[in-house]
Design a protein around this nucleic acid. Sequence first.
DNA 1: TTATTGCATTGATCTATATCAAGTGGCGAC
DNA 2: GTCGCCACTTGATATAGATCAATGCAATAA
Lengths: 249, 249
Amino acid sequence: MVGTKDIKPLIDDIARLEHEHQLECQDCSLYRLCLPLGLHRDDLVQLDKIIKRSQGYDKGQTLFNLKDDFISLYVVRSGSFKTTISASDGREQVTSFYFPGEFIGLDAIHMDSYQSKAVALESSSVCELPFDNLQDLGSELPRLQVQLLTRVSKELSGDKSLMLLLGKKTSDEKLATYLLSLSKRFKDRGFSAKEFQLTMSRSDIANHLGLAVETVSRLFSRFQDNGLIAIKGKTISLTDVEKMQALCG
Amino acid sequence: MVGTKDIKPLIDDIARLEHEHQLECQDCSLYRLCLPLGLHRDDLVQLDKIIKRSQGYDKGQTLFNLKDDFISLYVVRSGSFKTTISASDGREQVTSFYFPGEFIGLDAIHMDSYQSKAVALESSSVCELPFDNLQDLGSELPRLQVQLLTRVSKELSGDKSLMLLLGKKTSDEKLATYLLSLSKRFKDRGFSAKEFQLTMSRSDIANHLGLAVETVSRLFSRFQDNGLIAIKGKTISLTDVEKMQALCG
DNA sequence: TTATTGCATTGATCTATATCAAGTGGCGAC
DNA sequence: GTCGCCACTTGATATAGATCAATGCAATAA
């Protein structure tokens, strides 16, 4: 307990140093997942020039709000975010979760304001890509433009799958599908596919899957009883991936 | 009854003539809704060169199938289409309906095969845009590339709204939202916003909204009883748009 | 004209999941 | 430490909408 307090300043120092150092794309660990993929070294230097590496965001802090002017796309550098849209009466839907290397704000490109709200789920940081600059650069670097198009298409594809989940799947199929999708994304990022942190709350998960919190809670308990997972607070281990896959439908 | 048979050959003739004439983008009535928007006249000529104006598709005919090689994007020229994705056990979700000027296949850009199946809902025709050619041209015409990006972003945005609908709305809110969305799209295309044809079946609508056919049928009846709509087979009139909007949530 | 077929409607019943209600446990503030 | 708060869990009950079942109806074929 005393130890935690002692290292906090150290962590802050590291964050500050990292920020001052302004890590460039070439050296970034997300290189293989992120926008630069397929760009030449010279192009990267140009891309680096327009990227703003922002200060961090605390848990619960808003990256952008519904109807804010659309200025920039964001790429998660560390941590995680959720985006939500809301009905006129205030009901909200968690539309997506975003992890390192993923783009936030792509659905705003066709408007001049954001169509959703983005909030950090933990201490997080992002790279900011002012869209106008990105477009200017894109007109010189077709490969960049293609990368961007590919990104939006990929998110579109994911959203269609989520429509299948929301429209046709039962509660246990929903949760199983969700957990495996998280697992895959962590694996792609070089983390364990079997054990990871659920940085979002139960109610975020429930909302995203079109379920009630209580249902999600009961499902976690049942999955645990059936030996599918081991869960303790926010830490989850997938103990029977086979069976989990069979559950997805 | 005899009359219908007599004019059928005439209609076919017109379709054939239209096809042979190979109507160009400049002259197309969809000009203001379609890809050419914002392109210069010279650019349009180039775009026209890569567009294949295909034969028509009959009701129920497949434009492309899941896992077909991704070669082209398609723009609806006349008629309408639906796209579906399916779970491993065969359950299907109708992900979108497409009307003239709208793009089909955008979710395949990030893969080398289509992620969904597209089927004509009535006699329809499309413009085919071979994606490789489109990209070659795009690298010379940044405005074209931006148009394309904008299109995908717009579809993304619509899908997020549908997630809100599927996850959070009640059955009557779902149907009301859907009918008004159709109404707006018809209006944008210069058709009546109040009276139009539901080219898709009740079961397509139900599936798309995450409901059972019976529920949709009952809702249509109730909406009619409440003076919101008048419906006869596939023809619907919105008789109280105000009240309908209030129902959307 | 009458049969056939598939889509659509309407009614009766059932069920998955929401909602309501009552704890439980962990964590930060003091 | 312990107080208070909030997220989570677990149980009891309610309900929106699904499913099952029968019938109606319109378009095509015979």
